[in-house]
């Protein structure tokens, strides 16, 4: 298992260094236009936050996996975990906001010792769509997690899980040895209690990230391929596939630079820029909360330590009036969300 950039004391563990790389080089020389200039061409700068629809809470960077492409730089060696105190502050917002979606992410959110308490409490708020981003293998990682499918079901949690390919080779290469087999078993367990079955209210969606320096293909076509392969080979069903572009952040940025793909990848993102996707980028209706309660326009900005441009900087200071209409903080990584059909935590946007 590889170690996180933080554990390796890589220079890319420093978010400032990442922002420098994204701001300099081909973007400073003018070979490629900066994101701000690109969206200005269609009068879309500054990007403005609309009404909050999705509250995404990162409950910690600890994870049982160390995926090659992880923008969080998550892993077993990361100790940043949301406390119950911060969770209580989040609950106050969840109860009072009009957001229709609550989205718990990590790391592996289930590894937070207060995860189940938080899900119990948050599910009482009556949020329409309660998502947990589960990496699947956590369900098989330890006996204490084996009952997670039943726990999710009892709280009507919508499960969103990563699956980069329907073959073992590609999946394990990106997510670690043995991940594919464990993920398949976990998906079968979830299917067995009703998750992912057509017409079932127990939602099970998969996330596809390309396993390399290329952009995702058409989401609908990939979904078709995934569905056919998973049902034929393993009898597995799921609802939707979200095709998500890898953003040049953290370990994926490290991979791009080490494999000498960084410049070509940035060219691909800029070339695939789609102004129509800009109108629907997730940062305009999402708020991302970090493990220590700070607010960001998205999970990517959280990892780059680019906080919201608002007087309300912490969940304890949440104020709808202050946050709505704020200018979204952007940099060159934002090209990842506007390439082709666009990309968000809910998949394509255009």
């Amino acid at each position: 298992m590889i170690k996180s950039l933080h554990k390796r004391e890589s220079e890319l563990a420093n978010s400032k260094r990442q922002v420098e790389i994204l701001s300099n080089g081909i973007f400073q020389s003018g070979d490629l236009p900066k994101f701000k200039d690109k969206i200005s061409e269609t009068n879309q700068f500054p990007l403005k936050a609309k009404k909050l629809e999705i509250l995404q809470i990162n409950v910690g960077y600890m994870c049982n996996q160390v995926c090659e492409h992880c923008h969080v730089d998550a892993g077993p060696d990361r100790k940043e975990i949301m406390t119950r105190e911060t969770m209580k502050q989040c609950l106050e917002v969840i109860k009072n906001t009009g957001a229709h979606t609550l989205d718990l992410t990590g790391g592996a959110p289930e590894m937070n010792p207060d995860f189940r308490w938080f899900v119990d409490e948050a599910s009482k708020a009556g949020i329409k769509d309660f998502i947990v981003r589960s990496n699947l293998t956590i369900i098989r990682a330890n006996k204490k997690y084996h009952d997670l499918p039943e726990f999710f079901k009892s709280h009507n949690v919508h499960i969103v899980s990563s699956m980069p390919h329907w073959t073992k080779g590609k999946t394990d290469k990106q997510r670690g040895d043995g991940v594919f087999d464990k993920s398949i078993k976990a998906l079968q367990d979830l299917n067995a209690i009703g998750y992912g079955i057509p017409n079932s209210d127990l939602r099970l969606d998969l996330v596809y990230n390309p396993s390399g320096a290329f952009l995702p293909g058409n989401q609908a076509s990939l979904e078709k391929e995934f569905k056919k392969a998973l049902i034929d080979d393993f009898g597995i069903q799921f609802h939707n596939l979200f095709a998500i572009t890898n953003l040049p952040i953290s370990r994926f940025l490290d991979y791009l630079i080490a494999s000498e793909n960084y410049e070509d990848y940035m060219y691909s993102l800029v070339e695939a820029y789609n102004p129509a996707a800009v109108a629907n980028v997730m940062c305009t209706n999402t708020l991302s909360v970090s493990w220590d309660g700070y607010l960001y326009d998205c999970d990517f900005n959280q990892m780059l330590n680019l906080p919201v441009n608002s007087k309300a900087k912490h969940i304890s200071e949440y104020n709808e009036e202050l946050l709505e209409g704020r200018n979204i903080v952007i940099s060159q990584h934002c090209y990842g969300c506007t390439a082709g059909a666009g990309s968000s935590c809910q998949g394509s946007v255009a």
Binding site: H165, P210, L215, P216, G217, N218, E225
Partner: peptide, 10 residues
Amino acid sequence: TGDGLQRGIT
């Protein structure tokens, strides 16, 4: 080759 990778072709 790039097109194939995008389509999930192994």
